[in-house]
């Protein structure tokens, strides 16, 4: 099909960067799934040429972009918290403060030694599963979960 002076082949996948507005990139792609528009990677159905000229179309795409930015920000917050714990148990308790912690005991273990050879590994495993749980919930909240 021909659109806005651009020729899009339906048979092979084509991506055309149309233009950028503020930090938004508008891309039209045409492949076997049809012709679609995406803004900053968010796909929108673009079956009719009218939607491109429709002001509501941009408003709804703008919502999508903002939603994606909120999602990314929440993800970064989780990363910050979990990686701080990751650093504190291994480099903190297991290495930098190991000597100080060795005054305390956990059964037969000196505490600093336990963090270095046992505890930090357990906590690494827990951290990943906490992240899996949080992100699955976040994906659902924003409608990004895949079936």
């Amino acid at each position: 099909m021909s659109l806005l002076g651009l020729h899009l082949e339906n048979r092979s996948a084509t991506k055309v960067l149309l233009h950028s507005i503020n930090h938004y990139f508008l891309v039209i792609r045409s492949d076997k799934l049809g012709v679609r528009v995406s803004i900053n990677g968010h796909l929108s159905n673009f079956n009719s040429i009218h939607s491109y000229f429709n002001p509501y179309f941009f408003r709804s795409m703008d919502d999508k972009v903002q939603k994606a930015q909120r999602y990314w920000k929440e993800n970064l917050t989780y990363l910050g918290i979990l990686l701080s714990i990751w650093f504190l148990v291994s480099y903190g308790a297991g290495i930098l403060f190991a000597d100080a912690l060795n005054q305390f005991r956990l059964g037969g273990f000196k505490l600093g030694f336990w963090f270095a050879q046992q505890g930090s590994i357990y906590i690494f495993v827990v951290l990943i599963f906490v992240y899996v749980y949080l992100m699955n919930k976040l994906d659902k909240k924003y409608g990004y979960d895949q079936e």
Binding site: S12, L17, F25, N40, G41, W72, Q146
Partner: peptide, 22 residues
């Protein structure tokens, strides 16, 4: 380039992972 920046936006969202770019 902008389409590369778009790749970055794209990989940050989990939706549509099955749909590999041609």
């Amino acid at each position: 380039p902008e389409d590369v920046q778009q790749i970055v936006e794209d990989i940050r969202l989990p939706m549509g992972a099955g749909e590999a770019v041609a």
